[in-house]
């Protein structure tokens, strides 16, 4: 009984994914067509194949989506690397140059206390409704 339910859930998940992917290919096809691209028939065919498989043989798509997911993860890492190198790192240099980075990573040479006593948020003023 439970197995049957799980199987149905899996199939409906695969169908939803195939609809999403069909929409994606349709959009690509549209973009390609309106830009006088040559690839629009390929995207259209892909959209049709995916939605057909999704409707009639969703289980055949499970391997396909597995590899897509793997690819997606790899693309994700690359995208995050690009963001890290081209956004985070320059931002770090700029903030450091402007002395706006208030985090410290090394002990100070001057014989001062490390306690922070200024600008402390008074617990009595905390807004409990906010997540920040």
């Amino acid at each position: 009984m439970v197995d049957k339910k799980e199987e149905n859930d899996d199939l409906s998940f695969l169908r939803k994914k195939s609809i999403a992917m069909c929409c994606g290919f349709s959009v690509l096809s549209g973009i390609s067509y309106f830009n006088n691209g040559f690839a629009w028939p390929i995207f259209t065919a892909a959209a049709v194949i995916i939605i057909m498989l999704g409707i009639f043989y969703p289980s055949k798509l499970s391997n396909f989506f597995y590899y897509i997911q793997k690819l997606h993860k790899k693309i994700g890492v690359v995208a995050f690397f690009v963001v890290f190198v081209f956004v985070i790192t320059p931002m770090s240099w700029v903030l450091r140059a402007l002395r706006l980075d208030d985090m410290t990573s090394n002990p100070s040479e001057s014989p001062i206390t490390y306690w922070e006593t200024e600008n402390i948020k008074d617990p009595n003023d905390i807004d409990f409704t906010k997540q920040f």
Partner: peptide, 14 residues
């Protein structure tokens, strides 16, 4: 933290 320690820290960031 990621901004402060960049260019180190991609491991934590990703």
């Amino acid at each position: 933290t990621c901004i402060h320690f960049a260019p180190k820290g991609f491991g934590l960031f990703k």
